[in-house]
Nucleic acid binder design. Sequence first.
DNA 1: AAGCTTAACGCAAAGCTTTGCGGAAGCGAA
DNA 2: TTCGCTTCCGCAAAGCTTTGCGTTAAGCTT
Lengths: 345, 345
Amino acid sequence: MESYIEMGKRHTSLKDIAREIGVSISTVSRALKNHPDISPELTKKIQSVAKKLNYSPNPLAMGLLKQQTKMIGVIVPDIVTHFYSSIISGIEDIAKEHGYYILIASSNESLQKEIESVENLLKTRVEGLIVCISQETNSFKHFEKLIANDIPLVFFDRVCDSLNAPSVTADGKKAVVEITKHFYENGCRRIAYISGPGYLNISLNRKEGYLEGLKECGLEFNPDLFVECNLSPEDAALATKQLLQLSKLPDAIFGLNDTIAFAAMKEIKRNKLRIPEDIALVGFTDEFHSTVVAPTLTSITHPTYQMGQEAARLFFKRILGTASSSERIIMDTELIIRDSSVRIL
Amino acid sequence: MESYIEMGKRHTSLKDIAREIGVSISTVSRALKNHPDISPELTKKIQSVAKKLNYSPNPLAMGLLKQQTKMIGVIVPDIVTHFYSSIISGIEDIAKEHGYYILIASSNESLQKEIESVENLLKTRVEGLIVCISQETNSFKHFEKLIANDIPLVFFDRVCDSLNAPSVTADGKKAVVEITKHFYENGCRRIAYISGPGYLNISLNRKEGYLEGLKECGLEFNPDLFVECNLSPEDAALATKQLLQLSKLPDAIFGLNDTIAFAAMKEIKRNKLRIPEDIALVGFTDEFHSTVVAPTLTSITHPTYQMGQEAARLFFKRILGTASSSERIIMDTELIIRDSSVRIL
DNA sequence: AAGCTTAACGCAAAGCTTTGCGGAAGCGAA
DNA sequence: TTCGCTTCCGCAAAGCTTTGCGTTAAGCTT
């Protein structure tokens, strides 16, 4: 008896199995899920042939039928930063648990690309989106459309507070209060903050923490010591230069994130100033290389991987309909003290 | 006239448009691609309605019809290392040019997970795979199966030479010859090499370069100065310890990659030895933090992003049938000299 | 032996798109 | 008036799976 299976076909279908055995497609389908309508012997036979032919259901057909693709779109500013790739890892693992795959798109910090990504991802019929907005994103029409169409959407890290969507963020305010106090305890009195774009929630939250921290330490806010930059190393270097040109130098700098802190570190060194003796330095996000720079960088650790997991969990709550309309998870952070901020007083 | 479009449906189909206008589905399909059979007025009308309803073809249906998913599976040892995420970026961009999406899977350096990833990716009907094998991978059955089934497969960085598949790698041999000479010119005579698992092509190629370089410098190979480790920082630290316990210390260490070099750097510092005065150090892969460690690390730059692009291009050559059965691209590298290896003689 | 139940399957539709082919209507020509 | 051609559109199948419902034949009851 010759096999009817054509060679060159990459995947076996129910039809192939049906033809091979001489039964109908529906019988095969039922047998494979042990439907009682099919006799035990036939079921057994069909299952063995299916295994031999290495059958696996065609997800396209299933998707068409069930109207679901089992895919989640994930939009991040970039994929090469450890912070994001680590979060993606967390999302991926939870997605896998639910039998979902993720489709990753990078906005490259561009609003335009972010909008395109939303559209493209939607065209591929992802079932929803998990996103961290770009640093340029100050308009949210592309997301409002999703919410109006009832397409699941969850934000992480950089969120849009005005949108009614679930999110997971870090407690930036609390963290920066802690940083500011740490500076103070190490004798710093002119504490500078290099922030990101003012409309981003992370900039805002951390600034709140900065102000609150100053207050608690009995220090006054000095506009000279507050500068904004976009999130590039180049712009951060510029911001640092600006601080270093003040007639009265800062004695501490807090960078919105580690990228900014590293740029600041280079700039400070170039000016032959010592860290932390002349200027203490603290970052945020605890990138991998914090421990390997000199001096090692004091920073705030995000539980990045867990943030990714939580974001994904929020997503599935939403998919499964068990979510409150917009749950907001705020995760705790931890101050990791290293050499860049500790002065022997 | 009331619209027939149901609310709550997330996507418009041809059927929706057809019903809205009162023509058949096939007419709509043809009109949308300007088929001459459809009258200009009707075409115009259909197109305007399609636009209004924000129609985009259902990729599941298309996939089923055309038997293609427009998806590529990418398997990497991990996604959080800059080297891999950067390559992924390159792959992604070329894929996007071709209207393809990529599905990323991490093997976490585990052969078992790699095998699972291959199977899972295949179940989702990716059209082919682009992979960098795990450090454990010394068996290739899971890939042979792909080749036998004529499923496109291209390797990058860590490849399997015995398999007849296209690949893109860096010229490790040439690079390490250069490194060795660089050490020699800086007065080093006891040059050590911390390698990775012996069966990996990258370990092999670089060892060839090491031996060749020693030869050209008139140095003899000393087995004491050659150690292998798996690619973890912990194991690299162990390997370094082993070197530092030699009665006669090495005066130069080359690490298979930057991760190993960083681990070695920590270990050397812990032993109160100076870099590069006591031991010169060179890495490979030029991770972002090479410039920010102290001393800054001399290393080899891979053109990572371009490697990703080339891998993807190879993939599409294969898909489009214009590929020689197994083209192998070998990319040039560059030695970036920094503080960790330059001695003032 | 006729009627009925039940076990064990097959048919067909739906989900969406493309495309070869068949069909209807309109118009000019004979 | 009728044949034939052109123009313009619809039918249906294929790609794969699931599932409600219909069908067949065997076995049992009385």
